[in-house]
Amino acid sequence: MKRISKVLVFLLMTVTFSLLCMPAEAALSGDYYSDSDAKEFYDSISFREIEPTENMGKIVSFDVANQILLAFSSQKIAVCDTSGKILKAFEFQTYGNYYVQWCGDDIQIYFVRGDSLLTVMQDGELVSCIAVNPDRATNETSIQKLEHKTTCEISGVTYKIQKGRPILELLSGYKYTQMVKIDNTGRETILYDCTAQYSSETPTIIVLIIMCFLIMLTIVIYWQKNGRKSQQISALKGILK
């Protein structure tokens, strides 16, 4: 009887946790790590709290609920209030991409390399770790939504991550230098902006754009000349016949 009770309690806790940690857009599922394996993974990435700084790098992922959750390209994440003030910041070590989402009041980080979903409290304490199967249809869809998510709407207020200088940031991929808040009147407020921090990249990007343009122009001219030559040769052959 006691064994059955324990099983029922475990199932109830599992279902409850799953429901609490089911964001509307990206609910990832999988097999839970054992406590020791979860702790080993947590320690292996050296997850720790750090002092927040004004600019923490380009944004690679975000989520909004009662607070804002940001992930940066610098292997850092931050919890902000809805005015953009950073309340908590954490750092970790990993390779590959990662995305964040809220799980109730807890933080979830999905590590693409290793397909691991780590859940921690806002004080950085470990909650759990899940081995995600990326080939499962529902997980595949959820991962894609996490990867491409750039907008969140909460109670009529829209939060967006965007490129501060879209043309000059074409080569940065899914990395964004700004987060903006748009209220229900349409007024836009910049909550986070690190565009100026990467101004040194601008000359390099401009040079690359010019080089690409010149290469394309050269190819077009080459094709046009060869096309005309081919037409002239064909016409000459026709006359000789």
Rank of each mutant, 00 (worst) to 15 (best):
I190N: 05
I182P: 00
Y222C: 08
V79C: 03
F10T: 10
S73A: 11
N133H: 07
V64N: 01
S128N: 14
S5V: 14
I205N: 10
E54M: 12
N55P: 01
E51K: 11
I233Y: 10
F90Y: 14
S199A: 15
D31R: 09
F213H: 04
A235T: 05
G156Q: 08
S83F: 07
Q93G: 06
V15N: 09
F90P: 00
Q75A: 10
L217P: 01
A89E: 01
S46N: 12
T150E: 09
D37R: 10
K181S: 00
A196K: 08
M22Y: 13
L19S: 08
R48P: 02
C80M: 10
L168E: 12
M211P: 00
N184M: 11
Y99D: 01
A27D: 03
I143P: 00
G114T: 03
T177M: 02
L8K: 15
L191T: 02
V207T: 11
F41V: 02
Q101K: 15
Y95V: 14
Y98F: 15
T158C: 08
V15L: 15
I45R: 02
N139R: 05
K145W: 10
D35H: 10
C129Q: 04
L19I: 14
F62A: 00
E91V: 04
E91Y: 05
A71C: 04
L12H: 11
Y99M: 04
V127N: 05
T119M: 08
G238V: 02
D135T: 09
T141H: 06
A71S: 06
M1K: 07
S74F: 06
T151R: 13
F90I: 03
I219A: 12
Q162M: 12
Y174I: 07
T150A: 07
A24L: 10
A71I: 00
L87F: 05
G186Q: 07
K76S: 07
C103S: 12
L236V: 05
S46P: 00
N133S: 14
K6E: 13
A65Y: 08
V120I: 14
T119R: 14
L146N: 01
R113K: 12
M13V: 12
L191R: 00
G104A: 05
A65E: 13
S36G: 03
F72Y: 15
Y98V: 02
G186K: 07
E40W: 05
W102Q: 02
L214S: 08
I77K: 01
I182M: 05
S29I: 13
G186S: 08
S46Q: 08
M22R: 15
T150G: 03
Q108M: 11
L214Y: 07
S74I: 06
K229A: 13
K175T: 13
V127R: 06
A26Y: 04
T177I: 03
K2M: 05
S5A: 14
S18D: 09
I77A: 03
I68L: 10
T16C: 13
N66T: 09
M121N: 12
T53W: 04
F111N: 00
Q224A: 11
V207H: 10
K76Y: 04
F213T: 09
T53P: 02
S29W: 12
